[in-house]
Design a protein around this nucleic acid. Structure first.
Length: 381
DNA sequence: AAGAGCTCCAACCGCAACATC
DNA sequence: TGATGTTGCGGTTGGAGCTCT
């Protein structure tokens, strides 16, 4: 037990990363890829363990990270995903491009749990608090947050195992079904492929999504409200999106790089941002103020407002973390040939999810959409 | 102004799964 | 097949910064 074995070998730094360390790590990975993480600190000249380097890269330095506060849409999505996936933060993060599991976990623990409680929803079971309090944990009076946390643990033990799901969000379903917004919003692309827009923040819509994602056959969506998710046979697809959310930058294959050789441009996406001071210091996030949008339909559940995504307005789909230099450096032909690598053209999350469900065999279509969005966002290409 | 309490988030820790030998 | 190394995940912690008194 204790620290990772590699950390014993030498005196290694712990704690916050300095800008110099960040730059070293970023330079190294930008140039060579990470390869084997345990060798990164040595090669990069860092007094850190590989694990620490990996974490720093994933949670902070990765160029495709979206920074800044979470939008209302993202929060709603996290809540819905948590209702189905539980504390599987990495899987939740996989549905939110540019967000890390750590970030989402922090948001959940610091903010979303509180919000749900304020809305009268138990953050663990996603049932109305009144229902939970009159249920199995009635014997555990809640006097403060720590008590609540401990009761959550108890509830969690009722969940068979991590691979299974906590209770379906009946709390939402009860009040949202039948509302004007509780319909799945389908859209068809030019190939006649129908997609479901999860970000409509409706229970029914997400039920459709989750069924698509987790069940191996198409079951009536209303089953979700009555069966534990694990009975819906989604376990086989539990690692739902490890491939649907590609990390285009570096993979283990970069181990093959000769560290002394010139960097191969073929292996490096052309839109990798150059290392600049601004990259290290400038906030990269652009947060569309979704909740403030007057054009956005909203509805009220348990006294709380929910916002319905308006995916039709391209202004909201402006690139979220596109750096100026990046925008200049983009090679359109490469992007057109491989648009899925170009996640730097962040869409609103609704369209990202939608795209993940779109057939990959039509890249030009996706690229054309992205060009439209970018044109709308910047006014020129 | 100061210090106590709180919040948020970056980073650490322990573990399990997987890969390699 | 077991030992060892590596990676990834989720829980937890420490501390910086903020708010309150």
């Amino acid at each position: 037990m204790g620290r990772h074995s590699c950390c014993y070998k030498q005196k290694l730094r712990k704690g916050l990363w300095s800008p110099e360390e960040d730059e070293k790590l970023l330079r190294h990975i930008t140039k060579y890829g990470h390869g084997c993480w345990s060798s990164v600190p040595k090669q990069a000249g860092l007094q850190r363990c590989g694990k620490s380097c990996r974490l720093r890269w994933i949670n902070y330095l990765r160029p495709d990270l979206k920074r800044g506060t979470f939008s209302q849409e993202e929060e709603n999505l996290i809540i819905e995903l948590h209702a189905v996936l539980g504390n599987r933060w990495s899987q939740i993060a996989a549905q939110l491009p540019g967000r890390t599991d750590n970030e989402i976990k922090n948001l959940w623990n610091s903010c979303l749990k509180k919000k749900l409680r304020q809305r009268g929803i138990d953050p663990v079971t996603h049932k109305p608090l009144s229902e939970v309090e009159h249920g199995e944990d009635k014997s555990q009076p809640r006097t403060n947050s720590k008590d609540m946390a401990s009761s959550e643990l108890n509830i969690n033990t009722n969940n068979p195992k991590p691979g299974t799901s906590p209770v379906t969000p009946r709390g939402y379903q009860l009040e949202m079904e039948g509302s004007p917004t509780s319909k799945t919003v389908n859209s068809s692309d030019n190939n006649g492929n129908t997609t479901t827009n999860l970000m409509t923040s409706t229970t029914t819509a997400s039920k459709g999504f989750f069924l698509d994602k987790f069940s191996t056959n198409s079951q009536p969506s209303d089953l979700v409200g009555h069966l534990p998710i694990h009975q819906l046979n989604y376990a086989s697809n539990a690692r739902l999106s490890s491939t649907s959310n590609p990390t285009p930058w570096f993979t283990q294959t970069t181990q093959a790089f000769d560290i002394n050789s010139e960097f191969s441009s073929a292996a490096m996406p052309s839109f990798l941002p150059p290392l600049t001071a601004s990259f290290l210091s400038a906030p990269m996030g652009y947060k569309p103020s979704v909740a403030d949008s007057p054009s956005m339909a909203s509805f009220t559940v348990n006294g709380s407002r929910y916002w319905e995504t308006d995916c039709s307005t391209p202004e909201k789909e402006a690139p979220l973390h596109l750096m100026e230099s990046q925008a200049e450096d983009i090679k359109w032909s490469e992007y057109l040939n491989n648009p899925l690598n170009g996640r730097c053209f962040a869409k609103s999350n609704s369209t990202v999810l939608q795209q993940q469900q779109e057939p990959l065999q039509n890249p030009n279509m996706c690229a054309a959409k992205d060009i439209h969005r970018l044109t709308a966002a910047y006014g020129h290409v």
